[in-house]
């Protein structure tokens, strides 16, 4: 399309650039600035230097607790969810009958999972006299205090995320189905068993998808809000008080915008550092087709 002005493409991407500047770039910079201020919405933001951060890291016990809970939540849900998604995808990848039916059954919870209605449902099925405990008692076991006990509450919230393993599974399944079958045949002739086929052919070939899922799931898990907000409201004893809940409370309940921005930035830096580590380490374990390193 040689005759066009070289700026023509810029016109097409203009909506994106405007949106980016207004709704992403500007807020991004502004929140960094706000994190160094005291701002209650009524008067102008007042510069307080590093006060917010100092308070966060030295005097704020709620932040300590919330950070620990968040890290525990992410490091519990992400590996569990991905491992399960991969496991089920591998099983579905054997040419089974009714694969479509199973895929649908496993995928539906991911479609609905973020909904408040599902959080409501979770609250009822894990209630003291809810579905799960009724079933446990039905087979002679003792019911569990799923939400009331600080030891269990985070686990119960985590189950909700793991229940939504379907979207990661569909991505894994698509990758598994695109693995060149002739590779398996060649290796089988050389005497490789099933585990070896999986370990040395399948797994390396799907590392890009594992990497993609890992990053996306981690970034999302750090931002979980609906589940704990509806189901436990962060309790009991703040055992499910994830950082996004704390940020929400600080910003939109106490209107402490500066302090909330500082927490948001700490969360952002944690996510960014983990993402960078993942990208950096990916050179060592992610395989890209056509790559010289094998």
């Amino acid at each position: 399309m040689g005759g066009d002005s070289k700026y023509l493409g810029l016109w097409y991407v203009a909506p994106y650039v405007i949106g980016l500047l207004l709704f992403t770039a500007f807020p991004f910079v502004a929140s960094f600035y706000l994190s160094f201020t005291d701002y209650d919405l009524l008067s102008k933001p007042e510069w307080t230097g590093l006060d917010n951060y100092q308070k966060l890291f030295t005097r704020d016990r709620t932040f300590d607790k919330s950070l620990k809970v968040t890290l525990a939540y992410v490091f519990m849900t992400v590996p569990l969810k991905l491992a399960f998604a991969l496991f089920i995808a591998v099983i579905l990848n054997y040419r089974l009958r009714a694969i479509g039916l199973f895929r649908t059954a496993f995928y539906v919870p991911s479609i609905l999972g973020g909904s408040i209605a599902i959080a409501v449902l979770w609250r009822y099925i894990f209630a003291d006299t809810g579905l799960v405990n009724m079933m446990l008692e039905g087979v002679g076991l003792e019911g569990v205090n799923w939400f009331g006990d600080p030891e269990n509450a985070l686990f119960t919230i985590s189950l909700l995320r793991c229940w939504q393993f379907g979207s990661a599974m569909v991505i894994f399944l698509a990758a598994l189905q695109s693995v060149d079958k002739s590779l398996y045949e060649a290796a089988s002739i050389d005497g490789a068993n099933k585990w070896q086929l999986f370990r040395y052919i399948t797994l390396p070939l799907i590392t890009p998808v594992i990497f993609f899922n890992l990053i996306m799931q981690t970034v999302q898990a750090f931002q979980e809000f609906n589940g704990p907000y509806i189901i436990t409201e962060g309790g009991p004893l703040k055992s499910t008080y994830l950082l996004p809940l704390y940020i929400y409370d600080k910003a939109f309940k106490s209107f402490d915008m500066g302090y909330a921005s500082a927490i948001a930035w700490v969360l952002f830096v944690i996510i960014m550092v983990l993402t960078l580590i993942a990208f950096w380490s990916s050179k060592k374990w992610v395989y890209y087709a056509g790559d010289k390193r094998s």
Binding site: K6, L8, A30, L34, I215, Q223
Partner: peptide
């Protein structure tokens, strides 16, 4: 299309893909 700053602008698409909303929400 090819246009000036295309690479930079495209890299922001990837960056926003990974940018947690939590950091832009308050502003």
């Amino acid at each position: 299309f090819d246009f000036p700053f295309k690479k930079i602008i495209f890299s922001t698409v990837i960056a926003t893909l990974l940018l947690p909303n939590v950091v832009t929400r308050i502003p």
